[in-house]
Design a protein around this nucleic acid. Sequence first.
DNA 1: CGCTTCACGCAAGAATCTTGCGCTGAACCG
DNA 2: CGGTTCAGCGCAAGATTCTTGCGTGAAGCG
Lengths: 162, 162
Amino acid sequence: MKRSVPLDELDYRLLDLVQRDAKRPLHELGDEVGLSPSAVQRRLTRLTEAGVIRSTVAVVEPRAVGADLLAVVLVALTDDDPDHHASFRRRMQDEPAVQQCYTIVGQWDYVVVVLTRGIEENRELSYRLFVDGGAVARYETLPAFETVKAGLTVPLGEGPGR
Amino acid sequence: MKRSVPLDELDYRLLDLVQRDAKRPLHELGDEVGLSPSAVQRRLTRLTEAGVIRSTVAVVEPRAVGADLLAVVLVALTDDDPDHHASFRRRMQDEPAVQQCYTIVGQWDYVVVVLTRGIEENRELSYRLFVDGGAVARYETLPAFETVKAGLTVPLGEGPGR
DNA sequence: CGCTTCACGCAAGAATCTTGCGCTGAACCG
DNA sequence: CGGTTCAGCGCAAGATTCTTGCGTGAAGCG
């Protein structure tokens, strides 16, 4: 699950395909790239074991399950104490409503994307994560008015190294 | 692909499972929730046709394909002209390097998450999307130092209506 | 030139998925 | 209360898909 592997053109083509739809049968992918089903399967297995493909998941429509409020939160901690950062990260990782979290450079320390059921749950969540948790100097919540694009597909460009 | 369907406890359990790993065989999912493979399959089909499950995709590790620079960009347009907004959105949707894009309330109009191969590609991209495209008053790029959490799993809570 | 390696296609066997069928229990009348 | 309807279930057979051993050919190397 860790070996670094050089990827060739065919690998990129396959990644591009399964990144869009992972349910297609091997022979279809094979037809598309010009390989037999078994060759496709071996490549995908190799890519998975190498960690290039992290997992295969179902993408759920948030609104269908009541999660209708997405917000981007900018966070600054009180100081650079490694313990504070560590505990903050752990909080982010443990909280299901936190979709993404990045450390950034500049006047803010973190960008956090949270997804909740309505504004009230967002308020509770913000209090729990950014006030009650401690170590947060200030935070600014930017509620999303609309989702223009929500993807997780990695841009693959032409191929190796471009 | 559109009918709204009331989801019960079992649907939530199944969504929770396939959202983590969509490759598990039906009989395994069935064992976990107490259903036969065919019942599981019928439910998943129904959820897919209802649009609750949007798709099933492979999650690719960005660094494995050379995409090593993630940045959050805050964007403000020059005005509220609907045409400007429409063309901006289209640009975001058409650009593979744009991972996510949300309209937000406040002093910025959009939050855009972009993923590129290195800083040079980011610079080119920024120029192309935010300068050359027009209609952008100002933008601020917040390069991510580190990805603390990168998920797309919708928080499902307990079940219907929380 | 002979040896090794690697990825391929093929095909058989295994596993999984799909669907028709009959059953059951809950909800809904009359 | 008894009959009817209907949605969802499990079962099992058939179809599809996945998996893997085997033989082959194209480099790469000594």
